[in-house]
């Protein structure tokens, strides 16, 4: 566990991933689930970016005064990841709007109950 003190950045990222994971599983309101999904994603990206960081390194842009640079690959991957998580949030939020228009609530248990009733009394 002593090593966890050194890798504090990645430990926090995993804790954030855990918080997002728990929110996604436990909250019944769809908006809370989407927030949990976002927190989970940002946790994963923090984990990825903190891997490439080198103490004392400067940003990966050529400059005269920079002696050595941080690893540029995680920065590129996280940029892709951020755009993916925006697209996912946009789609899930539009699904939430449509569900609310049709069922009147965003609590998934309620929606299942209403959906099941609607089937039976066709």
């Amino acid at each position: 566990m002593r090593n966890l003190v050194y890798n504090y950045e990645e430990a926090v990222a995993v804790v954030l991933f855990g918080i997002g994971f728990v929110t996604l599983l436990f909250h019944r309101n769809l908006i809370k689930k989407i927030i949990g999904m976002n927190i989970m994603d940002t946790g994963v990206f923090l984990f990825l970016a903190s891997m490439g960081y080198v103490k004392g390194g400067s940003a990966p842009i050529y400059a005269e005064n920079a002696d050595f640079y941080v690893n540029p690959v995680p920065a590129g991957l996280v940029l892709t990841g951020i755009v993916v998580s925006v697209s996912v949030t946009a789609i899930m939020l539009s699904l939430a709007v449509r569900l609310h228009q049709r069922y009147g609530t965003l609590n998934l248990d309620e929606i299942y109950r209403i959906a099941r009733e609607k089937i039976n009394e066709r």
């Binding site: 090593n3 966890l4 890798n7 950045e9 995993v14 804790v15 994971f21 960081y53 080198v54």
Partner: peptide, 18 residues
């Protein structure tokens, strides 16, 4: 899942070191 991930993080290469 979180417990396993934390132990995995402890065994990963050090943060901030080349």
């Amino acid at each position: 899942l979180i417990g396993v991930l934390l132990t995995a993080v402890a065994a990963l290469p050090r943060y901030g070191v080349e």
